[in-house]
């Protein structure tokens, strides 16, 4: 919607704290470096075109070791722990959402994260830990017998391939949703978007008070927007807003 035509309707909901966003973007940066160096090490034509195997390998190894650090540091933040808990827990609606063919039409109440995002986060967390463990076995060759090192290489290669596909999927979903990108960039999302994509989470905001929602205060109001905030649970939006 154009801000100029309906300025009073625009209400933002706080989605990610600054700390959470820093964790996300540091992890993203390290992931991209790991994937790019992995491609050079692994894909023959890139190996030859790029060369410098020893340097590329060193960058890959140390970015790999650094990869879990932002997420571990994030656990020191309450907002991050709450979000990790939300990602961990599956409600009956999450299972319905996964089974539904029309999951995207908003008829199933979705929390702060939909079930796909939850599966993605669990897979990604597990994959990073597996890549770290197998990477350590490959790096410190004295740690394990050659049979286990071969096994570690096997697991590292296939899990990296799977994680690469999942990361590309993550990016392609983000590329199609400007408002979700805004959430991870600025920390706030439009309330209408939230009611459509994450209805149950938007309703949490409606239950509580608007003061912690970072809502831009419309002129002449106390921060609550009468037209879009009826004071009770908000019905999930049935029409995808055009943002």
């Amino acid at each position: 919607m154009a801000v100029g035509t309906r300025p009073a309707k625009r209400v933002d909901l706080a989605r990610f704290t600054l700390g959470e966003r820093i964790v996300h973007w540091l992890t993203a940066l390290l992931t991209v470096i790991c994937m790019a160096t992995a491609a050079v090490l692994y894909i023959g034509s890139l190996s030859i075109a790029f060369g410098h195997r020893q340097i590329v390998e060193t960058i890959h190894i140390y970015c790999g070791y650094a990869l879990p650090i932002p997420m571990l540091a994030g656990l020191a933040m309450r907002a991050y722990r709450v979000d990790a808990r939300r990602l961990n827990r599956f409600s009956p609606d999450d299972w319905r959402w996964l089974r539904s063919r029309s999951r995207r039409d908003g008829h199933i109440p979705v929390g702060k994260f939909n079930a796909g995002q939850k599966l993605n986060s669990a897979f990604t967390a597990a994959a990073i830990l597996i890549l770290l463990g197998t990477g350590i076995l490959m790096h410190f060759t004295g740690l394990a017998d050659v049979a286990y090192r071969t096994g570690a290489t096997f697991v590292h290669d296939w899990v990296a391939l799977a994680l690469g596909i999942v990361v590309l999927g993550h990016i392609s979903y983000a590329a199609r949703d400007a408002e979700s990108r805004r959430g991870m960039r600025t920390g706030v999302v439009d309330a209408t978007w939230a009611r459509y994509e994450h209805g149950a989470w938007a309703a949490e905001h409606a239950d509580g008070e608007a003061h912690d929602q970072h809502a831009p205060a419309p002129a002449g109001s106390d921060g609550r927007e009468p037209a879009s905030d009826p004071g009770g649970p908000v019905e999930p939006a049935r029409v995808r807003p055009q943002l």
Binding site: V82, R85, R86, L87, N88, R89, F90, S91, P92, D93, D94, G111, K112, F113, K118, L119, S121, A122, F123, A125, A126, A127, L129, I130, A200, W201, E204
Partner: peptide, 19 residues
């Protein structure tokens, strides 16, 4: 408390299973 915070810890099970 939102249902999202009280459901089964499927994410943790998935992580442990994959590990």
């Amino acid at each position: 408390v939102p249902a999202e915070l009280t459901g089964a810890p499927v994410g943790r099970r998935l992580v442990l299973g994959l590990l």
